[in-house]
Design a protein around this nucleic acid. Sequence first.
DNA 1: CGCACTTTTGAACAGAATCAAGTTTTGTGG
DNA 2: CCACAAAACTTGATTCTGTTCAAAAGTGCG
Lengths: 256, 256
Amino acid sequence: MPARTRATSLPAPSRLDLGRLRNACSACSLRELCLPAGLEQREIDAVDRLVNRRRPVARREYLFRSNTPLQSLYAIRTGFMKTSVLHVDGREQVVGFHMPGDLMGLDAIGSSRHVCDAIALEDCEVCEIPMDKLELLSREIPALQAHFHRILSREIVRDHGMMLLLGGMRAEGRLAAFLLGLSQRFAARGYSSTEFVLRMTRADIGSYLGLKLETVSRALSRMQDNGLIGVRNRHLRIIDREKLQAAAAHCAGKAT
Amino acid sequence: MPARTRATSLPAPSRLDLGRLRNACSACSLRELCLPAGLEQREIDAVDRLVNRRRPVARREYLFRSNTPLQSLYAIRTGFMKTSVLHVDGREQVVGFHMPGDLMGLDAIGSSRHVCDAIALEDCEVCEIPMDKLELLSREIPALQAHFHRILSREIVRDHGMMLLLGGMRAEGRLAAFLLGLSQRFAARGYSSTEFVLRMTRADIGSYLGLKLETVSRALSRMQDNGLIGVRNRHLRIIDREKLQAAAAHCAGKAT
DNA sequence: CGCACTTTTGAACAGAATCAAGTTTTGTGG
DNA sequence: CCACAAAACTTGATTCTGTTCAAAAGTGCG
């Protein structure tokens, strides 16, 4: 057994532990999404121990609620979730849709309290990552630290993209960009990028895109009529990606 | 002289060095904004050494440009800046306004390249913080690490707020919320929260709020007529904060 | 299997964009 | 310091996109 060189939370090489192994990050299909590349074995083991447990979240259940103290971040293992905040007048505004491999709760770090509600759009399973342990471990594993910073930063970039979309595009362009974004995220996870299921309602999409649900419905119909997409209930197919991209680019409209 | 207990980038207690001292974070009026509380003296010294130098940025000059490699983050010491991204069709969209104490470049960490342009709205002075050194030092000073995470997270929260505003409020509400936000940020920096100068053009404000400059102008006029504010060129005064808050809350409109 | 929710579609309306002057401010060079 | 040109701002009239209101059809959950 190798000698431990200094006090650290890195574990000795793990023994066989089937119960843990089944849940291990090292065995997770989302590894590339969640973990930085190039970790040493004992670092991977440490990360495995970092992740507390898998936890199921039933459809319509809250993973966390606004104003609740932040204890853990959550990585989605399976399923689809949405995050939303409430307007002063009580209306709900969706601020994000989240799929397997996404890390949730990042916006709570600033105040140590959640600032949005996270709701499962279907039955989900999430990995719980205690925030304090994450900060501890990322001090010891520079690659993990850098990876975490990248994730935070990318969230900012994503939000800037949304600001762009909300501030400068019209209905059809927003929808086109939204669908292309989903497509890309599905592709990155190994799912079909041309055919997928919209797990959220039209109202959710509208809220996210700053549109009314009727407008979403109309825009989808029009895009279907023009042969860009096929929609049937929540099942969506991208038929002409070129045209869809053109719609997203061109429907920038509003010569801000 | 105290013995150094382990290899580290923390310096020995600094000697008198007037040139450095004048620029030191420890002497900076923005200390509370930039630095975590409760650092030990030698930690503060380390942070002082982290910040490379003050650098002037003339009005209209770029602090950094999109797609440029990220080397450093920048903290604004004096002056006002804006960040913007370009739409596919070349239109500029403002994604943020930045004032003393703000940290810029956070959105570049994800890709190691800047994803927006930063332009000085007036003559500025910024502190350059090399990213690699920051990550190094934050591994050694947990308080610094936590502070940095908080800053990143708060940026995400701020952006969510913008999404809310862009997605769910109408022109006058957006403007009211924008002005109140500015007011609050000025207050946090010790400036007047009721009377200040808008360093940006109406077009910049419009771009930021997803409105045309004419709409901004009209909304400002109307709010002036109704006694909420006083505007004279770029000089703005908040006359009736209650009503302004009501406008921001009530003009949520759009029953999304 | 039925009831509630979701979605589609239509018609009227409203808010903001666009187009168009005209005015004021600012910045520059003489 | 003034004059002039460019930029920024205000205001009005018109147009158009998206919202609102309304009703009917479709889905799927319990």
